[in-house]
């Protein structure tokens, strides 16, 4: 366990060194992140112009969802995406050989090869959005609500990571999954909206297949103090299921690895 923590530290350090190696790039990256974060709020402005609530969500309440979306997007693009996009490349080129030669868990190793530290700015943006939203609402979240939302953030991270592992596992069967990874990012974008906005098939898909509702809407509801306990249970169960299922699929998939010839 200590060894893994140390390996994670080395890789985080390496990514940070890399990010700061070119000072100019680093500053530009940070500025771009700020602009992106600002644009996260723009769709809400447009939709809420001229009406006070949508699908039971007022403007500041919907902002809380956006806050969670921003936070998770930062996690996805900063800590999950860079490494796992890399796996696709490693499988195609056959350099995954080196990972499999190491006496350590392969899933851990491929999941920690690269980080994008500049995405940490999303955490700051999300906090600003939360503060602004709750000032408009007029009162802060309860301690219980906050605790529940933090717990849900953990389950959301597990869900997101599990989904990614499932997507990446496909690479062992079809090799080129770049498009699949783009599709994943595109679908994730829908998580910026409260889940009650979606109806019919979309609602079912986004709850059970790609559980976007569990990722952003539930934590927001928890923060707003209106999360049903059954949703909390659903989230915990869902995260556990995805963790176990994705691990099983990964182990099976890695057995299919045939390595690229010399």
């Amino acid at each position: 366990m200590r060894r893994y923590a140390y390996l994670l530290y080395i890789q985080l350090k390496a990514s940070t060194l890399l990010a700061m190696q070119y000072r100019g790039d680093f500053v530009v990256d940070l500025l771009i992140e700020l602009v992106w974060a600002a644009t996260a709020v723009v769709p809400l402005f447009v939709v809420f112009a001229g009406r006070s609530s949508i699908a039971g969500w007022t403007y500041p309440e919907a902002l809380v969802v956006t806050g969670w979306f921003t936070l998770l997007q930062g996690l996805l693009e900063g800590a999950i995406n860079p490494s796992l996009v890399n796996v696709v490349e490693q499988v195609r080129k056959g350099t995954l050989d080196f990972v499999l030669l190491k006496p350590a868990d392969a899933q851990f190793l491929v999941s920690t090869t690269r980080f994008q530290p500049s995405k940490a700015i999303n955490a700051i943006t999300a906090t600003l959005i939360f503060v602004y939203a709750f000032r408009r609402i007029g009162h802060g979240p309860t301690a219980g609500g906050l605790a529940a939302s933090l717990l849900l953030m953990v389950t959301a991270s597990i869900l997101l990571y599990g989904l990614w592992i499932l997507t990446v596992s496909a690479v062992f069967y079809v090799v080129r999954v770049d498009n699949l990874t783009f599709l994943f990012t595109a679908i994730f974008d829908a998580a910026r909206w409260p889940s009650s906005v979606f109806r019919g098939v979309a609602k079912i898909v986004f709850t059970f297949v790609i559980p976007l509702a569990l990722m952003t809407t539930y934590p927001a509801e928890a923060m707003l103090g209106r999360l049903h306990p059954s949703s909390l249970a659903l989230s915990l169960g869902g995260a556990l299921f995805f963790a176990v299922f994705s691990r099983a699929v990964w182990v099976r998939a890695i057995g299919k690895y045939t390595s690229a010839s010399s």
Binding site: L7, Q11, A14, L17, G94, L101, P103, A104
Partner: peptide
Amino acid sequence: LKKIMLILGQKQQLFWDLPPSETFEYNRAI
């Protein structure tokens, strides 16, 4: 795995953008 190593002349394990010493330290930990 701790007893063996496969060296592939046509593939590399060194971190491309970082000095080799970083890869050495990473392997030391692994």
